[in-house]
């Protein structure tokens, strides 16, 4: 029995994390919108739409990574999300703001070293997954058994 390659294990863990994060946020757009506003990055008019859509992007990405479909695109979107989360957290801290991270819905805590570390880990996992899927997409197809 061969073990799955490391990027696949990372993709699975990342996928499950994204699904959990999305499910905990989905259906609570008002709460999430207020968290988004608290970062003071997007215009106030954009917060409701982002709050309505973001959890479902996380759920879709996570499910695709776990299910092994469209993994290249899912890894790219996950990496973009990870980069956006990390940079917005750092930007808030740099401006002396301490909003809730909004990472896991009602289980969120104020941003700080711990949430920045989680966001960095998410970005690293997405980068590992993306590199793995990028290489796999360029590899020759396995020989047919027929």
């Amino acid at each position: 029995m061969t073990r799955p390659p490391m990027p696949r294990l990372v993709a699975g863990a990342l996928g499950l994390t994204l699904v959990a994060a999305g499910v905990l946020k989905a259906g609570r757009p008002l709460d999430l919108g207020r968290v988004i506003e608290a970062y003071r990055i997007l215009p106030a008019l954009a917060a409701p739409a982002v709050a309505a859509v973001l959890p479902w992007i996380e759920v879709a990405c996570g499910a695709l990574l776990v299910g092994g479909k469209l993994r290249l695109g899912a890894a790219a979107v996950a990496a973009a999300l990870g980069l956006a989360f990390l940079s917005s957290g750092l930007a808030a801290l740099a401006r002396g703001l301490h909003p809730l991270c909004g990472c896991f819905g009602k289980y969120s805590v104020e941003i700080g070293a711990a949430t920045i570390a989680i966001e960095a880990a998410l970005l690293a996992a997405a980068a590992v997954t993306l590199v793995g899927e990028w290489r796999r997409a360029g590899a020759p197809p396995p020989p047919s058994s027929h």
Binding site: G27, R28, P29, L30, G33, R34, E37, A44, L45, A47, P48, A49, A51, A52
Partner: peptide, 10 residues
């Protein structure tokens, strides 16, 4: 529980 789009949150 949806939010109105295109206007600030209440």
């Amino acid at each position: 529980r949806g939010v109105a789009l295109g206007r600030p949150l209440p």
